[in-house]
Amino acid sequence: MTLLAGGVGGAKMAEGLAALDDVELTIIGNIADDEQFHGLWVSPDIDTVTYTLAGMIDRSQGWGVADEGLRALGVLEALGEHTWMTLGDKDLGLHIYRTMRRHEGDRPSDIARHIAKAFGVKPTIVLPTDDWMQTRLVTDIGPLSFQEYFVREKCKPEVQEIWFEGVEFAKPTPEALDALEKADLIVFAPSNPLVSIDPILAIPGVHDAVVEAPASVIAVSPLIAGKTVKGPASRMMESLGLEASALGVARHYQGLVDTLVIDTQDAELQSDIEALGMEVSSTDILMPTLERKREVAAYLLEVML
Rank of each mutant, 00 (worst) to 15 (best):
I141S: 08
I273Q: 09
S109N: 09
A5V: 03
S282I: 00
D22N: 15
G88K: 02
I162G: 05
F119I: 04
A176F: 01
G55F: 09
V8Y: 00
G69A: 02
D89T: 00
M85C: 13
L256Y: 07
V257F: 00
G166W: 02
D130Q: 08
K230S: 08
L194P: 05
Y97Q: 00
G64P: 13
D258C: 03
P172I: 06
I224D: 04
A219W: 11
V210Q: 03
D258N: 14
A183G: 06
D198A: 13
I57P: 01
H207N: 02
E274R: 11
Y299T: 00
T2S: 15
L256F: 10
D140M: 07
L76K: 11
I224M: 12
T173I: 00
V65E: 04
R113D: 14
V303L: 10
Q254V: 14
I115R: 07
H252F: 11
L177P: 07
I57K: 08
S271R: 12
E77Q: 08
A183W: 00
T264N: 04
S196L: 04
V167H: 02
V249K: 04
D266C: 06
A5C: 09
D47M: 03
E35T: 08
G9I: 11
L276W: 02
G39F: 02
L94F: 14
I200R: 01
P199M: 00
P108I: 08
E212M: 15
D263R: 09
L53H: 04
T86S: 13
H95F: 05
E243I: 10
I28F: 00
W41R: 08
I218D: 01
L276C: 10
E24H: 00
V65T: 07
L73K: 06
W84Q: 14
T139P: 06
I262L: 01
K117M: 03
P128N: 15
V23H: 02
K117L: 10
P174Q: 10
E268Y: 07
I197G: 03
M100S: 03
K182E: 11
V8I: 09
V23M: 06
G120M: 01
Y149V: 04
A267P: 03
A233R: 00
V257A: 03
M13I: 07
L240P: 00
R292I: 12
M56S: 01
L79H: 09
I224N: 00
F169A: 04
G62I: 15
G55M: 01
P172C: 09
S221I: 08
L4M: 12
E165P: 14
P204H: 10
S234A: 15
I111A: 02
I96L: 15
R113H: 15
W163T: 09
